Computed example of a mutant assay.
Amino acid sequence: MAGRLSIDLRAAALAALAALALAGCAGSLGGGTYERGEARRAMTVQFGTVESVRAVVLEGSRSQIGTVAGAAVGGIAGSGVGSGRGAAAAAVLGAVVGGVVGAAVEEGVTRRQGVEITVHLDAGQYLAVIQEDEGENFRPGERVRLLRDGGTTRVTR
């Protein structure tokens, strides 16, 4: 029984790690990263001057992958405790706790550092854009361009 439980826990842990690794592969939200669907799409280009730059945190994803993986691991781990109704109750409790922990782990693993860049456009308006910090180090007074397609706006040099 102990050998089976060890193998089950190892398999569940590997499944959870694989699921979290997939969650960690979420696309970048920086100014230099484009989704495949944005290729060959016309974008409006505006020019302006950076007024301010502020560090922000981009929340991690909540895709349910972490919740499901954590619940699976917790349920399998809990089912090895006791026997009969005790094992069933432990499996349910393990699944609930594992799901909560898995969701928190997924959000934490996919959290990113970002920047809020406020730009004074040449046309006179001010626009703030939040994007992932890809180390571009925008500075107040720097000339930049904004690319807009009606749904997405990014600041680039």
Rank of each mutant, 00 (worst) to 15 (best):
M1F: 13
A2G: 14
G3K: 13
L5H: 12
S6W: 11
S6C: 12
I7C: 04
D8S: 14
D8R: 11
L9I: 11
A11L: 11
A11I: 08
A12L: 02
L14M: 11
A15Y: 06
A16S: 04
A16D: 00
L17K: 00
L17D: 00
A18I: 02
A18E: 01
A19D: 00
A19C: 01
A19T: 00
L22F: 12
G24C: 04
G24T: 01
G24Y: 00
C25H: 14
G27Q: 13
G27I: 08
S28A: 12
S28L: 10
L29D: 14
L29E: 14
G30P: 09
T33A: 15
Y34N: 15
Y34L: 15
Y34M: 15
E35T: 15
R36N: 15
A39I: 14
A39D: 13
R40Q: 14
R41W: 09
R41V: 15
M43P: 03
V45C: 08
G48V: 07
E51C: 01
S52D: 01
R54F: 06
A55N: 04
E59A: 12
E59G: 13
G60C: 03
G60E: 01
S61P: 05
S61G: 12
R62T: 10
S63T: 14
S63R: 03
Q64H: 13
Q64I: 12
Q64V: 12
Q64T: 14
G66N: 05
G70M: 02
G70D: 03
G70E: 06
A72S: 10
A72R: 05
V73P: 04
G74S: 10
G74Q: 08
A77N: 07
A77K: 08
S79A: 13
G80V: 06
V81T: 10
G82K: 08
G82L: 10
S83W: 07
G84P: 07
A91I: 02
L93S: 15
L93E: 13
A95E: 09
V96H: 08
V97N: 09
V97W: 11
G98H: 09
V100Y: 10
V101M: 07
V101S: 08
G102K: 05
A104H: 11
E107W: 07
G108R: 12
G108W: 07
V109Q: 10
Q113F: 07
Q113P: 09
G114V: 00
G114L: 01
E116M: 04
I117V: 09
T118Q: 02
L121N: 01
D122R: 01
D122W: 00
D122L: 01
A123T: 07
G124E: 02
Q125F: 01
Y126E: 10
V129S: 05
I130V: 15
Q131N: 05
E132C: 04
D133A: 05
E134M: 06
E136C: 05
N137Q: 09
N137Y: 05
F138V: 02
R143G: 06
V144N: 03
R145Y: 09
L146R: 03
L146E: 02
L147K: 09
D149Q: 04
G151S: 12
T152W: 07
T152F: 03
T153C: 06
V155E: 06
R157G: 12
R157A: 12
